[in-house]
Design a protein around this nucleic acid. Structure first.
Lengths: 214, 214
DNA sequence: GACTGGTGTTACCGCAAGTAACATGCACGT
DNA sequence: ACGTGCATGTTACTTGCGGTAACACCAGTC
């Protein structure tokens, strides 16, 4: 009855939506995570209510915007994870891919790492947990899956893989965040140091003379 | 001339300040990180401007409040880190201390993990980097110091220790955050899994049959 | 008794999220 | 041609929060 018509409408709506997202992207890239809805609307050449019609609320826009970048980043990470090389090289390539991404577009990265800060006024029940950005969670889950698929971890391996997935992602994130702020070394050195950590150098290191050891 | 007087005033001011912080603490514990200045003032039985006189702005209150809890947590962590046991046990004790803390008071923990979200209106230059909560940074720095003091890491050891400090803290944080939300296992299991990761089991694990390995 | 300094108040500003109500253009069925 | 839907767009508003100005009270001091 109206399939073609609705398809037309939906297509135009989708196009509009993508345009709005690109405008939002530009603003976020310029203003960081505190980009206001007004600013985004202005950048898109329209006014606020249209944004709200398309995305519901700021969280919706955030989610849509985040999904784009998160998907893109995850694709890059998957590529690094699937490269034909030995395990250590793949780990280093994955770390380097992530760090290169946050280095290239720190504003976007900063935006992604913030959850929906101001919850709704009526939000009485606070969700305990779930403080992390969705990006971190998704990366953790994906990495966990890769680990579990490819490594033989014995009994309880699935759970171990999930812990490791989230743990490694958190390590990568925190180290990258700190590195981005202080730039204490080159990216390659950072990658090497983190891989060394994952490779057990912490456990293998000798005690310092006179000290009790760590 | 006015030393005693000023001391008196300062003492009373400090007492007020502590009372206000305790009130703020209660509100944060109840409402989470989005506790409003109004709510805190109401809980303290006063009105907003007094809070602003004592703490400058919301960031100041946040910082003061965060410092209390951060100091307390860091004390616990130092104690675990200094326990008379071997390295592995100390690492596990430290992880467990942190996880127990966030498990016991998730609201406070959530509050601590959020940086000053809404920057000032006039804040044009966004600080790239420095997205992490001060708590994470401080834990990372302290752990780095402990590692560097106690472990013999050879040349470049100081930098390596800093990377590891922040990396390990990030691992702990992200895994803890995820665990707090999903509760997929007991705290002890989580601690063991993370320690295993740090102990190089990722590098040592065998490839899965038929797979390319990780 | 006037002066000072800290504590407290009410009433306001500015800004951003989110909403209502109204206007406009375009495809349809009759 | 013409009203009917419907998406798109607007202006103008409400609400709530961070932050501030201006005024009131109440010690102790010269």
């Amino acid at each position: 009855m109206d399939t073609t018509q609705r398809t037309d409408q939906q297509r135009s709506a989708d196009r509009r939506r993508r345009e709005l997202l690109e405008a939002a992207d530009r603003v976020v890239l310029r203003d960081g995570p505190q980009a206001s809805m007004n600013a985004i609307a202005a950048e898109a050449g329209i006014t606020k209510p249209i944004l709200y019609r398309h995305f519901g609320d700021k969280g919706g826009l955030y989610a849509a915007l985040a999904k784009r970048h998160t998907d893109a980043l995850l694709d890059s990470l998957r590529a690094a994870l699937d490269a034909p090389a030995d395990r250590r090289e793949r780990v280093e390539a994955t770390l380097d891919t992530y760090l290169a991404a946050i280095e290239a577009r720190p504003q976007v990265y900063r935006f992604l790492m913030h959850p929906a800060e101001g919850s709704q006024p009526g939000d009485q029940g606070f969700d305990v947990g779930k403080h992390s950005a969705p990006l971190l969670r998704r990366m953790g889950e994906e990495l966990a899956q890769v680990i579990e698929e490819r490594l033989d971890l014995g009994p309880g391996g699935q759970q171990l893989a999930r812990v490791w997935g989230h743990g490694i992602v958190g390590m990568m994130h925190a180290a990258g965040d700190w590195w981005l702020g202080e730039r204490p070394c080159s990216r390659a050195e950072l990658v090497r140091s983190l891989a060394d950590l994952l490779w057990g150098r912490l456990a293998a290191a000798g005690d310092r003379v006179g000290g009790p050891g760590f």
